[in-house]
Amino acid sequence: MPSETPQAEVGPTGCPHRSGPHSAKGSLEKGSPEDKEAKEPLWIRPDAPSRCTWQLGRPASESPHHHTAPAKSPKILPDILKKIGDTPMVRINKIGKKFGLKCELLAKCEFFNAGGSVKDRISLRMIEDAERDGTLKPGDTIIEPTSGNTGIGLALAAAVRGYRCIIVMPEKMSSEKVDVLRALGAEIVRTPTNARFDSPESHVGVAWRLKNEIPNSHILDQYRNASNPLAHYDTTADEILQQCDGKLDMLVASVGTGGTITGIARKLKEKCPGCRIIGVDPEGSILAEPEELNQTEQTTYEVEGIGYDFIPTVLDRTVVDKWFKSNDEEAFTFARMLIAQEGLLCGGSAGSTVAVAVKAAQELQEGQRCVVILPDSVRNYMTKFLSDRWMLQKGFLKEEDLTEKKPWWWHLRVQELGLSAPLTVLPTITCGHTIEILREKGFDQAPVVDEAGVILGMVTLGNMLSSLLAGKVQPSDQVGKVIYKQFKQIRLTDTLGRLSHILEMDHFALVV
């Protein structure tokens, strides 16, 4: 994948999101292997301009796509893939009243899908469409860049269908997702969380590099694949309309690839034109409109599966009536509230959605109805927002919020430890010299600072030695090549209790 991002070429006709291997024109390309080798690009942008032909009021008969309808489940399912879809609609009884809503608040519980998330729908649909058009064949390999849930859905379907599955996901995604993927037989590649989507090191860039190296491999490409919004247009939206008897006044959905909100909203605009569509985008993402909503100094966020630093091709923002931004604290607070007060075992993005819903639905009156999409299960986040310690460490809970008995030293300040200034190293000294210094002084790690004293990161003896043994660096290389740029900081005025929580999850903390 090139470091400079080429513009994806656009073909003359058809839909841009065809499933299957992508040609340089962004659509299915038939021909000899030699032709494909000559024409197939190194990668295709996940934010390529959409060429979708959908228009409100256009006859369904003019759609270029294969459409399906929700099917009634048999008493005995032939395999677990038949437990994807037909998820329950559940009334939220307490939270709406707590925040003064007059309307009825309903939750579409997508964590009841077989793999635990709304992404099971698009995973199965992308595979079925690729099999139907002859792209996927027995023994082929599926590769997908994902925040985890699409990966789980694909790995689940691949396990049943017999495909090899490789999932490329950023490091910030939970260990629970990784464990589930491994249990399903998927191979996992992790990428830096802070890598831009168009960087060769991003999950998108690495996935395309693997595709170019592995024979008979395919990126189904949830960011561009029409099967993504079509899955929701054909099934999720129809289920909502049936469950609500066609009567709903507002739908609120958090947005990642945009397939969920695009597919549902398009069908609702056709069948229930008075329904307002509300999009939820986390602070630090750029999906919301108008652009002024996205202006923030924050560039990272903890909530998973929603928000991006690019506009995915499948996201149709014209069908969203209003956007709201959400933050991590309210997302996790509301997710825990949904679990504790409503018994809905949902993930953090569901918290984002409901946090926005109780604001947006203030305009609705008694007798009206708001539906929220709860995308995934708490299963993926047992060591994250479900953990009091994690919430404390991230600053989303305060010590006084917890009532468990603490040891005698818990409320003492870090400054009472009488710490001395640490050994520091410059980023320009060599790895070999740094190892000598650390061994001589008896230290395992040291902060790396520039000549102005600005902290650049941390270097550890173990990481340097393993990097040297693996051949990633040489003793003569500058130590700046092996620094940890993500590390926890703590102030002298913070409590030892807070430091204790940090050290339970990290090997060190830097006192500043």
Rank of each mutant, 00 (worst) to 15 (best):
D47V: 08
K98T: 10
M173C: 05
R182Q: 14
P12F: 06
A237D: 07
K267W: 08
R224L: 04
V255N: 07
A195V: 15
H218Y: 10
L42Y: 09
Q243W: 05
G57H: 08
Q242L: 14
A130R: 08
Q222V: 02
I214G: 04
I152P: 00
L77S: 02
F111Y: 10
K30T: 10
E128C: 07
L124F: 15
K271L: 10
G139D: 04
G57A: 15
K177W: 00
A195C: 13
N225Q: 03
K269Y: 03
G85T: 02
V168C: 07
P145H: 05
K137L: 14
L248W: 01
C103P: 00
I167F: 08
L124I: 08
K72A: 09
K137M: 08
I166L: 13
A114L: 06
E29H: 13
A155N: 07
D238F: 10
L248R: 02
C165K: 01
P12L: 01
H218F: 15
E62K: 14
D47N: 15
G31V: 15
A195N: 06
G100M: 05
I167Y: 07
G31L: 02
P215V: 04
T150W: 00
A130T: 08
P215H: 10
A48N: 10
F197N: 08
L81K: 05
E62L: 11
P192S: 11
C272R: 09
G116H: 07
V160T: 04
G134P: 06
E270T: 05
R276L: 15
I261R: 01
L156D: 00
L154I: 05
G258I: 01
L101Q: 03
S117K: 05
M126G: 04
E29M: 09
E131W: 00
N194R: 03
G256M: 00
R91N: 15
I167A: 09
R164T: 06
L106W: 14
G139Q: 05
H66A: 07
A60D: 02
I188N: 04
D198I: 05
P6A: 09
L28V: 14
G153W: 03
K271M: 11
E62V: 07
G100Y: 01
T262H: 11
R276A: 12
L42R: 13
Q7N: 10
G134C: 07
G263K: 00
F112Q: 06
Y223K: 00
